Amino acid sequence: MTEQSAKKDTDEVVMVRKKSRFEFFAGEVLIYLAQIKVFFWVAFLISGSLNDEDRLVEFLSTRFNDNSLSELGYIILGTIITFGTILAIQKAAPETVWFDEVADEILTSISKTIYFFGSSVTGSILAVSLFIYLNPDNEAPKPEFWLSLSIVFGIGSFLYGCLISYAFSHKKYVAKPSS
């Protein structure tokens, strides 16, 4: 192997500044809020700027149905099974830097799945809340109910996803607090 070909096979070393815990948390919050905003705007635009109840209901039926609650449980169970499988393979396999990096990326990406599901539900519920506020209906639950539901669901999904993200990335990307 010549020196020229050896240089082609070697990547440059990249220095990554570790974030403080606050920077990590703030970044995760902004990522999650951006995803919520995307799904809110999708519901807003599909429903003709929240003017077409039928189109809003049709959109929401793709997000929520009789299986939504069990789907949430399955997502949580699926993440736990995936964690266990990846960690078991990582323990059983011979130590390789490559597989350890791939396993870390897989485990870290699971938080993004939680964010995706949580933000789609939260953004959609926020659209419902605003729709009911703009179009009062005595039969529908008050907008405050939907707003509260979106906040509770949104915070719960964020915390689950953020804790997963932190658990599998803090050693690599988050600086230890100075004593």
Results as ranks from 00 to 15, higher is better:
residue 74 Y to L: 14
residue 75 I to P: 01
residue 75 I to K: 03
residue 76 I to Q: 01
residue 78 G to M: 01
residue 78 G to I: 00
residue 79 T to K: 12
residue 80 I to D: 09
residue 81 I to V: 15
residue 81 I to G: 08
residue 82 T to F: 15
residue 83 F to K: 05
residue 83 F to I: 06
residue 83 F to R: 06
residue 84 G to H: 00
residue 85 T to Y: 13
residue 86 I to R: 08
residue 86 I to Y: 08
residue 87 L to N: 06
residue 88 A to V: 10
residue 88 A to F: 13
residue 88 A to W: 12
residue 88 A to D: 05
residue 90 Q to Y: 01
residue 90 Q to H: 02
residue 90 Q to A: 00
residue 91 K to C: 01
residue 94 P to D: 03
residue 94 P to S: 02
residue 94 P to R: 02
residue 95 E to P: 04
residue 95 E to S: 09
residue 96 T to F: 07
residue 97 V to F: 05
residue 98 W to I: 10
residue 98 W to C: 00
residue 98 W to Y: 10
residue 99 F to R: 03
residue 99 F to D: 02
residue 100 D to L: 04
residue 101 E to K: 07
residue 101 E to Q: 07
residue 101 E to F: 04
residue 102 V to Y: 10
residue 102 V to L: 15
residue 104 D to P: 00
residue 104 D to S: 14
residue 105 E to Y: 09
residue 106 I to P: 01
residue 106 I to E: 02
residue 107 L to E: 01
residue 108 T to D: 02
residue 108 T to S: 03
residue 108 T to M: 03
residue 108 T to C: 00
residue 108 T to P: 00
residue 108 T to H: 00
residue 108 T to G: 05
residue 110 I to C: 03
residue 110 I to K: 01
residue 111 S to C: 04
residue 111 S to I: 01
residue 111 S to W: 01
residue 112 K to L: 14
residue 113 T to I: 12
residue 114 I to N: 04
residue 116 F to E: 07
residue 116 F to C: 01
residue 117 F to Y: 15
residue 118 G to F: 02
residue 118 G to M: 02
residue 119 S to E: 11
residue 119 S to T: 15
residue 120 S to P: 00
residue 121 V to W: 08
residue 121 V to L: 13
residue 121 V to M: 12
residue 122 T to P: 05
residue 123 G to C: 09
residue 123 G to Q: 10
residue 123 G to W: 09
residue 124 S to W: 06
residue 125 I to H: 03
residue 128 V to N: 05
residue 128 V to H: 04
residue 129 S to W: 08
residue 129 S to M: 10
residue 130 L to I: 15
residue 131 F to P: 06
residue 131 F to I: 08
residue 132 I to S: 02
residue 133 Y to K: 14
residue 133 Y to H: 13
residue 134 L to T: 10
residue 135 N to M: 11
residue 135 N to Y: 11
residue 137 D to H: 03
residue 138 N to H: 13
residue 139 E to R: 14
residue 140 A to S: 15
residue 142 K to N: 14
residue 143 P to T: 12
residue 143 P to L: 11
residue 145 F to I: 10
residue 145 F to N: 07
residue 145 F to W: 12
